[in-house]
Structures are given as C-alpha cells and as structure tokens.
C-alpha cells in the first residue's frame, strides 16, 4: 500500500532532503563528465528532468498494470491474474521503456525543432544510460508510490539532479583559478566537492514535516 506522504511534500523532499544524486548516488557518471560548464549543465539537467518525469509515470503503469502479481486482472480476470507474476521482467522492460521514450523524444524534437535538437546534441542518447532514471523507476516500485506520488517523485528527483549539476558547474567554473594538485584535478576534486555538498544538503533534513 502506498505511503501516506503528500505528493508535493515528496517533490520538495526529492529535491532537498533526499536528493537522488547526493543521497542515492545515482546519475554520477554524466554528472562528473558534464558539469564543467554551466550551459552544458543547464541543458542536460533540463533533459534529464523531462525524461525522468515521464518515464517514471510510464514505468508505474508498466509495473502496476502489467507486471505485478495480479496486475493483469483487467485483461484475464482476477483468478488467472493472481497466478501470473512477471515482476522479474521489470528491470529489462523499464529500461526498454526509458530507451524507447528517449528515442521518441529525439525524433519529435528533430521533427519539430531542429535547432533545439542541434543544441541538445549528444545529451539525449546520454540520458538513456543515466542510472538516475532507472534508479528512480526502481525506487518508486520499492516504496510503493501511487501514480501521483510517482509523478512528483520523478519530477522532484529530476529537479534535484539538475540543481546539483548546476551548482557543481558554477563551482567548477571558479576552480579554474584555484591551485589544485595535478592528480586531484578533474574527477578527484569533483568528488570531494560533491561530498561537501552532500554534507551541506543534509542540513535540510528535518525541514520537511508531514502533516
């Protein structure tokens, strides 16, 4: 049964107190690779948020209407459905949903706004392997969110990811003038700073109250 959390509360919490990057460590590869410039960070973050919101919703439908034990009741009746349990296919099918959605978005953008397509460039295919998106789909199922909660959770997680990569790109822009030891440059210092950000964000804990 779904937890009794207000969806908007979930949204705020996913951005600040339970940030998918800082507390669940998801979406790190693209984060480290693409946080060098602010423009890049803005573009990628927007794309990730968009995809995450919709694929979380789609994967919710996939799990609760097709895969869970008894989910197929609308198709074959409750008694037969109670014996069909396709949960083990969720990993594969949720990835398929994400890949298909990204492909679809790519095609639509290319058709209706070639300039935007050009601007986004490599980002769209990159999103498919962003583990934050699959991670959000998995966590949503584990926590048993209902549809509206899933939508808010997906949107909030995307926003949270966007916030962190944006902040990091700002910081890294400043780092160009800092005297960082050679072995620490790049990945090393990014990770250390992310750790400090994680500590800073943990100060938000307790800000969120459940009515």
């Amino acid at each position: 049964m779904a937890p009794d959390v207000h969806p908007l509360l979930l949204l705020v919490a996913s951005v600040l107190t339970s940030n998918i990057l800082l507390t669940n460590f998801l979406g790190l590869c693209s984060f480290v690779a693409c946080s060098k410039q602010v423009a890049t960070a803005v573009g990628l973050g927007a794309a990730v948020t968009f995809v995450m919101t919709f694929t979380t919703a789609l994967n919710w439908a996939l799990y609760y209407l097709l895969l869970q034990r008894g989910a197929l009741a609308w198709l074959v009746g409750p008694e037969a459905a109670a014996r069909i349990d396709l949960e083990f296919l969720y990993f594969i099918l949720s990835i398929a949903v994400i890949a298909a959605f990204v492909q679809l978005v790519e095609m639509i953008i290319d058709r209706f706004s070639p300039t935007l397509y050009y601007a986004l460039g490599i980002f769209l295919p990159l999103i498919t392997v962003n583990c934050a998106i699959l991670g959000a789909a998995l966590f949503m199922v584990i926590r048993k969110y209902d549809f509206v909660q899933s939508l808010c959770y997906g949107f909030g997680s995307g926003l949270g990811w966007w916030l962190v990569i944006l902040a990091m790109s700002g910081i890294r822009a400043r780092l160009r003038f800092a005297n960082i030891p050679k072995p620490l440059q790049g990945v090393g210092i990014t990770l250390l700073i992310t750790g400090l950000m994680a500590m800073a964000f943990s100060a938000f804990t307790g800000m969120v109250k459940i009515q």
Binding site: T23, P181, P183, Q185, G186, I189, L191, L192, G195, S202
Partner: peptide
C-alpha cells in the same frame, strides 16, 4: 558511512591512484 563519506573516500582514492599512475587528463 553516510553519503558524504562515500564521495570523499572515492575522491581520495582517485587522488592516490592518479598520483601513483598519472593519466594524461588534466584541467578542472
């Protein structure tokens, strides 16, 4: 054992790794 420690731990390891076996990547 909380989130920040993970980032810092890995960051330190990367530092050590690159100090021992430098790669060509540079810049921030």
């Amino acid at each position: 054992v909380l989130a920040p420690g993970a980032f810092i731990g890995l960051g330190l390891l990367v530092w050590i790794g690159k100090a021992i076996a430098p790669t060509s990547e540079g810049g921030n």
